[in-house]
């Protein structure tokens, strides 16, 4: 059955089914008056009228902080204990297509030669139930970067809302098909229900991604005056990087004492002035515009050119959370223009 129907009333049964088997069910829900992806155990905790949750799903695959090893000082020397992730299955319900599309990019970095199993094991044991967007706001710009509000990229199952509030489910991957099969008493035959219209943001005028990539690839533009000008407002708070679904920079720190403790992998941000600061005092990215330029380069050069992946999925979170309203799409327009003028 390639298409099926998930009735709104059946959601509780699905949540119960997933949880009974030891899994967790993550869905958009209200926390501190904001819509966020979080673990729910009850269908009543879920919200259905949302655009893009405040957080991305990356915190469930790449936690904000996680132990990578534990150590203890013994008489014979230090003993180190490996930490192996044995993740429970995570079902992501109501993931927006932009978020689902971001996983491929993060995975590319975490599997580039050395494989970070802390990430891959979690992603491999997840089921991505994407829901096509039926509303968007001024900050959404997925179509500008080539992501569709009803796109299947990264999805195991693509859901579309019906006018009755149910979901028409399309299996995209084998994992998705197996999931529907596993919970076949929850999914029913599609009855030809009428679908809600998909909300497609207008592509932003004046942005040409190929031109941006071309401009960034040309090393002579790295010292262009536009960077200092465009990034002048940035206060370096890092909010964009923490909410961005493809940002994945991290720090590794020891916590505890030399007698006992653990080494942790913690989210970090390339926007912080200490990020690249050498112990000697030298800092290759010593001013804010250089750090901002690095992030923009990462999105529109390193990810697409080096990793053949999407650096930006157009979710718009960085615009929504920026305290100084440094809008990345405005920079994209400026750079597209600069590229045309070359």
């Amino acid at each position: 059955m390639e298409k099926s129907l998930l009735k709104k009333e059946a959601l509780q049964k699905l949540i119960d089914g997933v949880r009974e088997k030891g899994g967790r069910f993550v869905a958009p829900s209200i926390l501190a008056r904001q819509v966020v992806y979080r673990e729910v155990d009850c269908a009543d905790q879920m919200v259905h009228d949302y655009i893009v949750p405040r957080n991305s799903i990356k915190e469930f695959l790449f936690p904000q902080t996680e132990p990578i090893l534990r150590f203890r000082l013994m008489r014979e020397g230090v003993e180190v204990e490996d930490v192996r992730v044995e993740p429970e299955r995570t079902v992501f319900f109501g993931v927006r297509p932009c978020d689902a599309a971001s996983c491929g990019a993060v995975r590319k970095v975490f599997t580039w030669d050395y494989i970070d199993q802390f990430y891959t094991r979690r992603e491999d044991s997840s089921v991505m139930m994407t829901i096509a967007c039926t509303s968007s706001d001024d900050e959404c710009f997925c179509t500008t970067v080539g992501v569709s509000p009803e796109g299947k990229e990264g999805a195991d199952l693509l859901l579309k809302e019906t006018v009755d509030g149910d979901y028409l489910v399309e299996a995209v991957t084998d994992r998705g098909r197996a999931f529907v099969e596993e919970f076949k008493d929850v999914f029913t035959e599609p009855d030809g229900a009428e679908l809600k219209a998909v909300a497609t943001p207008e592509p932003i005028e004046g942005v040409n991604i190929d031109n941006i990539i071309g401009f960034l690839k040309d090393r002579s533009h790295y010292n262009s005056e536009i960077w200092a000008e465009l990034a002048r407002k940035c206060v370096g708070c890092g909010a964009c990087t923490f909410t961005c679904p493809t940002c994945r920079c991290f720090d590794m720190v020891d916590e505890g004492t030399y007698i006992e403790g653990e080494r942790r992998k913690n989210w970090d941000s390339c926007q912080f002035d200490s990020f690249t600061l050498h112990a000697s005092g030298h800092n290759p990215r010593d001013t804010q515009f250089k750090r901002w330029r690095n992030r923009f380069m990462c999105k529109f050069n390193f990810y697409p050119v080096k990793f053949s992946a999407r650096g930006c999925v157009g979710c718009g979170r960085c615009i929504r959370v920026c305290p100084v309203r440094l809008d990345i799409t405005e920079v994209m327009i400026e750079v597209s223009e600069a590229a045309r003028d070359v």
């Binding site: 970095v109 580039w112 970070d116 991290f250 390339c270 600061l277 990462c298």
Partner: peptide, 15 residues
Amino acid sequence: ENKMKCGVGKCGRCN
């Protein structure tokens, strides 16, 4: 020489 944390191309610092 650049500041590094992971050493294996993940942490985003030494580029």
